[in-house]
Nucleic acid binder design. Structure first.
Lengths: 344, 344
DNA sequence: TATCAAAATAAAAACGTTTAACACGATTTG
DNA sequence: CAAATCGTGTTAAACGTTTTTATTTTGATA
């Protein structure tokens, strides 16, 4: 038995395939009674639309490309694990639509540019979701010039307006610094992502401004930049805790670097809450299991990821990008007092 | 300017589209010189194969469906994070092929059965990669009955032979128990995945056998089953450490539950290496950053994931499943002595 | 009842590819 | 030397859909 097509239904009903096609897509050109007959026949024979036919005819792919920049296989560090949740959130948001998530794993920023160029010029997808945005992101420009629908996870700074979803890093860092300053901290370290990333700049900016408000001096030595692995968090602590005037607080950009910072504490014999504290941003709520649990700004990753999915759908339907922008403020979860007793 | 097709090349060269098509796919029916001409023309006009045409004509989708069972969005636990690396590994293995990874995120086992049934009957993909196998897995039977190419991440116990990739849980647990017994442990806990999963059974079996070899009694109270979240690892420790004769070693099934176990230690005031130790299986090499670092059986996840990718390719080319089976032995990384000083 | 516009349906072409069937000259074979 | 075979290319049909254009049917009006 072959899979039924509109031809099958046409024979079944005595109508032409044109009428069947129109009836199934609710064209006003076909009479309600006729549609009813067609739908009934479709039901009866178990008809399912064959996407390959419509793809060839219409040129639409019904694919949303998710660009996932993950370190190469050599890399054995804990990095980018939040992608799993991100992808499933996107996938769920597309569930009711005919669109599917198509995965493009790339190893570097350059490769992501190339892949996006290919997707755009060869129309390998109808929309793109991309993360790891830079201050001036060439990929954003590329897609804008081609008028290709896309949503970024992360803001840009110098690009024209586009659809995006991001955590409100600005507000989060200002709040975080102010809160720590209130608790008596005068040396606050910022463990920041790679400097070329847009949110790295946003965080650094907010950090400097917040220090100023709190009347604290800015010391560039208290800011580290790097790929957000545990190794990086650890190194940051190892380096900074050797200063003659070491930090008493570390603001980590994610849970991986926070875990690494803990490892640095352990290596240096530092005790959390006595010598220094760690605060973090947390997507996966894992820092509640650290020993001791730490204070975090928690943004459950399913929120931005489902937003990404619904935004790309709306964008592909032609909605203007200005209407599709979200900054989400993570929720403060205080698991520690975060005061340190000044050494005598 | 329209995108060039084989028609363009045909006009360009004066050949027929049939010859062009054959030339481009290295058919022996076309003379090398003719092929050279075609290839040159294709190059010149910037021809790229349009997949929609071939999909419609051949019925092939050039999609590999990756079924990802992830907890629903409500779920705020650290779980399934290794999927990110798994997916990128698969994606990389398919890179040189025309196949793409298409993501199907599902929330439950039942949903995964339904999704697979749909993919198979509607030919929405050419191959399937599925994980979280059960002892007798209905999805495996489904795909086998339909003669649909697939590879599982994880073994089955009661199903007919099929392509799979897995860690060698049997050998790993036996080794782990023996090693701990050698070091004087007499109460060894097994923190195991959900009991219906195939590898849960394999691990439990190996555990019992290894205890027997070591001359230690089997105590069912020392085995816990659950979803491998930090919460579960924590609960396991909280419960078992209250026993009158508590375990001195915990064998955790992944890094998430190991982290949770640490959290349990902290809550109970247990010190790692003094009161008890934690061993784990680690995909992401994150346990080196625990404080203190623990002994793990490390299987870098890119190994099985790239194997999954190449296996599904070979399976789709018709290679028999018996040739596509791999059990990988994780590498022991001893980061701790793992002896505990018996209390006086 | 004849006419005509509007409504409903049908016919046909097109999207880009693969492939079975065929054609035709050159080469081998009995 | 005629017949069969081979090598290389062409023709034409097909995959399932959408959409433009053409045709028929319907219902209203004169």
């Amino acid at each position: 038995m072959q899979r039924p097509t509109i031809k099958t239904i046409a024979q079944e009903t005595g109508l032409s395939i044109a009428t069947v096609s129109k009836a199934l897509k609710h064209s006003p050109q076909v009479r309600p009674e006729t549609r009813a007959i067609v739908v009934a026949a479709a039901e009866r024979v178990g008809y399912e639309l064959n996407m390959h036919g419509v793809q060839l005819r219409t040129g639409k792919t019904y694919q949303v490309a998710a660009i996932m920049t993950a370190p190469g296989p050599k890399q054995k560090e804990w990095e980018g694990v939040e992608y799993a949740q991100l992808l499933s959130g996107i996938s769920w948001a597309l569930e009711e639509s005919p669109y599917r998530v198509s995965l493009y794993a790339v190893r570097s920023f350059e490769e992501s540019v190339a892949v996006i160029r290919q997707i755009v010029s060869l129309k390998k997808a109808d929309g793109i979701i991309v993360s790891g945005t830079r201050a001036d992101d060439p990929r954003v420009r590329l897609m804008q010039e081609a008028d290709f629908p896309f949503v970024t996870y992360g803001t840009t700074i110098h690009n024209d307006p586009h659809a995006f979803v991001d955590a409100d890093n600005e507000q989060m860092i200002r709040h975080s610094v102010a809160r720590l300053a209130e608790r008596g901290h005068r040396r606050i370290a910022l463990v920041n992502p790679q400097p070329e990333l847009s949110y790295s700049i946003t965080r650094l900016d907010a950090y400097r401004r917040a220090l100023e408000v709190a009347g604290l001096p800015f010391d560039p030595a208290l800011v580290s930049h790097g790929r957000l692995t545990p190794a990086f968090g650890r190194e940051s602590v190892l380096a900074m805790s050797d200063f003659t005037d070491p930090p008493t607080a570390y603001i980590c950009a994610n849970e991986a670097s926070a875990l690494g910072a803990f490892s640095g504490f352990h290596a240096r014999g530092l005790v959390h809450g006595r010598d220094a504290v760690i605060n973090a941003t947390d997507d996966l709520n894992v820092s509640q299991y650290f020993a001791p649990p730490i204070t975090t700004y928690f943004l459950p990753i399913h929120e931005p990821s489902e937003l990404l999915g619904s935004y790309i759908l709306r964008r592909m339907e032609g909605e203007p990008p200005e209407a599709l922008q979200a900054l989400i403020m993570p929720k403060l979860i205080e698991r520690s007092d975060d005061r340190v007793t000044p050494k005598a």
